[in-house]
C-alpha cells in the first residue's frame, strides 16, 4: 500500500515540476502558486506514505523505522522527502520560486526511478542486527538531511555561476539571467544551505562516532568513510571560515561549494561500498 502511495507521490512531484517549468518560462504568478501548492500536497502525501510504511513494517513483525535506510529505495525516498522539505522552506524564506525548476524535476525523476523504473526492490526488509538501534536512525537521518542541504547549496552555486558568467567567460544570456534570482540572493541561499548542512553534518558525525563506539569499541578508526566525512567537514569549515573573512563569496565561493559537494558524493559512495571497501557497509 505504501509503495502505491509513494508512486502516486512521484506523479504529484512530476506535475509540480511541470508547473515550475511553466512558471519559469511564462512568469505567471498563478502557475507559480499552483506549483507551490502541488509540491506542498506532495510533501504531505510523502509524509503519510512514510508513516504508512513504518506502520506496515510493524504489521509484518519487523518493526523498524524506514529511516534506517537498509535499502536503496528507502534511501532515495527519504532523500527526496528531505530535499522537498528544504526546498519549500527556502522558497518561503527567500520568496523565490526560480529554484523549483532545478530541484523538483530532480526529485520527481528520482522518485519515479525508485518507484519501479529502475527495478529497485521496494519490499520492507528485515534489518540485520548491526543496523538496529535509534542512534543509527539519528545518524543516517542527519547525514541524509545534510547531504540534501549541501545539494541545494551546490544547485544555488551552479546557478550563481550561470547568472554571473556563461561558459567561455561570456556574459550570461539575458533570457536566463532575467529569470534567475539576483546573484546576491543565490549567494545567500548557498551560504544558508551550507550553514544548515554543516550543523546537521556535525550532528551526523557525532552520532556516527557514538554508534562506532558501541559497535566497534572505538569512536574513530580512520575508516575510509570516516576519513571522507572528516575531509568533507573540514572543506565546509574552510568554506565558512573563508566566507566569514570575505576571502571568497560569489564565484569562488560557488566553485568551492561545488567541489565540496563532489567530495560529499564521494564520501556517500564510499559509505555505500561503491568506491572503496569500508567497514561502514553493514554487510561487511
Amino acid at each position: 500500500m505504501n509503495v502505491a502511495l509513494f508512486s502516486a507521490v512521484s506523479y504529484i512531484y512530476l506535475f509540480s515540476s511541470l508547473a515550475y517549468c511553466g512558471y519559469f518560462f511564462f512568469r505567471v504568478d498563478e502557475v507559480g502558486k499552483a506549483a507551490t501548492g502541488i509540491t506542498a500536497a506532495g510533501i504531505f502525501a510523502h509524509t503519510a506514505a512514510y508513516a504508512l510504511r513504518w506502520f506496515e513494517s510493524y504489521k509484518l513483525g519487523m518493526g523498524h523505522s524506514p529511516l534506517s535506510f537498509f535499502t536503496l529505495y528507502e534511501t532515495i525516498i527519504f532523500a527526496c522527502w528531505s530535499l522537498t522539505l528544504m526546498y519549500l522552506f527556502l522558497e518561503h524564506l527567500f520568496r523565490t520560486r526560480a529554484l523549483g525548476i532545478f530541484v523538483l524535476p530532480f526529485i520527481s525523476l528520482a522518485m519515479l526511478g525508485a518507484s519501479g523504473s529502475l527495478g529497485m526492490s521496494s519490499r520492507i526488509e528485515a534489518l540485520p542486527p548491526v543496523l538496529k538501534g535509534n542512534v543509527l536512525a539519528y545518524h543516517v537521518t542527519t547525514c541524509m538531511m545534510s547531504l540534501t542541504a549541501f545539494l541545494i547549496a551546490c544547485i544555488a552555486a551552479g546557478l550563481l555561476l550561470l547568472a554571473t558568467k556563461a561558459p567561455g567567460n561570456m556574459p550570461a544570456p539575458a533570457a536566463l539571467s532575467n529569470r534567475l534570482p539576483l546573484p546576491q540572493v543565490l549567494d545567500d541561499i548557498c551560504y544558508k544551505a551550507t550553514a544548515v548542512g554543516f550543523i546537521l553534518f556535525s550532528m551526523a558525525m557525532a552520532t556516527g562516532a557514538y554508534r562506532a563506539k558501541i559497535i566497534w569499541g572505538r569512536y574513530w578508526s580512520w575508516d575510509p568513510v570516516e576519513a571522507g566525512s572528516l575531509i568533507m567537514w573540514l572543506l565546509y569549515a574552510l568554506i565558512l571560515h573563508g566566507r566569514y573573512q570575505r576571502w571568497w563569496g560569489g564565484t569562488t565561493g560557488a566553485l568551492l561549494s561545488i567541489a565540496a559537494f563532489a567530495a560529499a558524493i564521494c564520501s556517500f559512495l564510499i559509505a555505500a561500498n561503491r568506491l572503496m571497501t569500508s567497514a561502514h557497509y553493514p554487510i561487511q
Binding site: W222, A227, G228, L230, I231, L234, A237, L238, G242, W247
Partner: peptide, 15 residues
Amino acid sequence: IMLLVMFLLTILTDT
C-alpha cells in the same frame, strides 16, 4: 585556514 588545508591534504593522502 592553513591548518584546515594541511589537515585536508594529510587525510586525503592517507585515504
